[in-house]
Nucleic acid binder design. Sequence first.
RNA 1: GCCGGAGUGGCGGAAUUGGUAGACGCGUACGACUCAAAAUCGUAUAUCUUUGGGUGUGUGGGUUCAAGUCCCACCUCCGGCACCA
Length: 846
Amino acid sequence: MSHEYNPKEIEKKWQDTWEKQGIYTTPESKDGAENMYLLSEFPYPSGNLHVGHWYAFAMPDIYARLKRMQGYNVLYPIGFDSFGLPAENAAIKRGLDPKEWTYGNIDYMRNQLKSMGASFDWSREIITSEPEFYRWTQWMFTQFFENDLVYRDITKVNWCEQCKTILANEQVIAGKCERCGSEVIQKDMAQWMLRITKFADPLIDDLEKLNWDESIKQAQREWIGRKEGSLIPFEIQKNENLEVFTTRADTLFGVTYIVLAPEHKKIQKWKEQITNWAEVENYVQSVAKKSERDRQQTKEKTGVRLEGITAINPATKKPIEVWIADYVLAGFGTGAVMAVPAHDERDAEFALTHDLPFQFVILPSAGEIGHSRPLITSGENVSILEAGAHEEKGQKQINAEWHAFYDIIEHDKDGLLPKGKRVACSFEGRLIHSGEFNGLSSEEARVKITKAVGGTLTKTYRLRDWGVSRQRYWGTPIPIVYDPEGLPHSIPLEHLPWQLPTDVDYTPDGTAPLARSQELRERTENIFGKGWTPEVDTMDTFVDSSWYFYRYLDNKNQDIFAKEDFIKQWMPISLYFGGSEHTTMHLLYSRFWVKALHSLGLVPHSEAYEGRSNRGLILGPDGQKMSKSKGNVIDPDEVVSFVGADAVRMYLAFIGPFNEPGNYPWDPNGVVGVKRFLERVWRLREKVSKEPSEELFVKSLHQTIKKVSEDLERLKFNTAISQLMTLLNQAEKLEKIGEGEYKIFLQLLAPIAPHITEELWNSFEDTSIHQSSFPQYNERFLADDEKTLPIQINGKNRAFIKVKKGISEKEITDLVLTQDEVKKWVSGKEIKKIIYKEDKIFNIVI
RNA sequence: GCCGGAGUGGCGGAAUUGGUAGACGCGUACGACUCAAAAUCGUAUAUCUUUGGGUGUGUGGGUUCAAGUCCCACCUCCGGCACCA
């Protein structure tokens, strides 16, 4: 061991040694050790490991190392999510083969990953673009096809003109492509859909049993967007029914017209009966031209009446008008709305614009009136009054408005509001002007009215089925062939993997590159017969990552994606580390995938991730997101060559609480500070002696063991490190430190800084520190018999006295009252009260 | 608008069940070592101050002997959803 701490030398040495000795190769089971599966989302082989990768893999590695030292048989695997658009786009830009480019990157990244000193079991590595991997992606797809979990449909799809491919709803962020940021347009296309909506309920309900952050669960619930309501049939013309979805069946008597989405299929059917067809068609086309974004941003309530079409309100049996308007969305509910202007803000706006009747049917309960206000509309002016606008309008005026509100509804016999006195109120309450249902609460009425008119109670979801077809080259080929009649058939296992053809010009032009492969066409005809054609789209890469974690368990198996025994031994994953951007994409898709596999009896569990940790983001030193254009990118390789991998790992662990996904700016001086700490740990070796350390230090050491164990367990690496720093500060003040104590200190630090601790440990022991047992604290050393107690007077600290723990109130009172600092405040004054909390506080109230 | 989370020094961030706010690190200042610098080590570092003490955890109230922590109202920021019937 040299006198200087030289990370470059020792880190490489130990990485090689660990690999040679295979100390991180994880057996399927280990005597006396419980299995634990820890996983970090695998990377895209984009070519370069950035600080984010270090954060993503080195932090979970701290936890994996801790758990291994605590006696678990820990699986912490790694692989590459190597199919996909980024790789393909980059390859096209450089004029290379996507495969060559990708595999070159993988080789490069593998070495970079090794330089982190992470305890990956490399023998279990997977690469999703390997035929032996995608063979099983394809097989699962065929299983889903056979069991009606996947289907082909022609629908409006999100199309990215830049990437020349379809995108899933989840990949459209605020109307733009998740990858390239360009505007997404709508297009009619055939694509393969996965029935994720079939599992909408369990995807929400099973969140309950997961040990995840509430924010992640909530985001998923909102994405799935379950709403309970009713389907109500409205008779249109003769014998034709139109279903509408509503959450407010209690307002059915207040329905004064119906509005359809311009895309609603019935409109074309009614062409003959609509007397103003030209006008209607014109409107439909003008809406079709608008982008989804424009349509959502315009708040004006435009619309056209379908003249000649009349609906019957099933409650009142009165005829009502039918309209189309673009504020009604085709994709939600049934694409048709029953309009209740008197009790819905949007309907009120629309009704005022187009002069449609307001029928008042719900009297808000008195409780609502205290802090909320109705929407009041009068004449042509809409003044929407809501809760929480107290700043602008005083309480008096609010009361006046309520007064006016009651005035209007009380003066009206049948609830049909006259022009100029139109009022809307979206609150629930009791029913009026609703025949036999009068007096019922909204809640009761919803059920009763729905049943009375032959409707059904139902749920509706925001979630759409997952479209997985991609018109690109570098992805898993969809294992489907079409017979001469054009009917799809899944490819049987014996012909899987259904290889990605290589005789393809993969430059994207909007059509699928695989269609240009002669080999693929010939292969299909050779196997299936003349006239058979292959599917030419590839799969969304989120399919690959939906099940990859099973393959780590049995990555060489040729007969099945993973042996059942191994799945039972390892799953579910105890803790899954990843980025928050995947909350409504990867995390949702893979939960669906597992549920689908489970429904086919292929896996024994319905959830794969017991725990989930979303990590934060490492920002540039300027507090901005790292980007080449801003010139604030930190290159980890560079930093490692300067301070070593241990310092980089430790700095990232120290930068902020890993269990809270915040944004933490990289401070170049911070790394240096951590490097200084490691150098001091190195130098402390010289103070090690055979004599045990003094008792005070042993006490601190045991407190440190406790704190570090607890903090590492909670992923609060930052405070674990600060405790180790405090202990080092103490140790440095001593002349000598016992060998045993020093070794324990090294063990505590080992998960965080694996190389330096191994090197120092090696000067005492022949076996690896990482195979040693994590230290346990001894209660005996934690018990302090003295305590410095703050003495407060009227709640302010005035003195501190050292007392025996558990001292009685009488004893301490006598002691405190003799203290000069206390006398100064108390003398001549009456003591009203004394509060003494054992070992916590002593407070005198005067 | 609805839902979730967060506001603490110059900076990143600490503070079990309410009980010494600012741990630890960075930065800064001064000192030691040095011909000098770097590195290293030591000391100080919320703020005001008449040196008694006062004030301080986004704002305003409240509960309590005691509030960063609990309650009410609000402001700001971050994330998710949003013409969703």
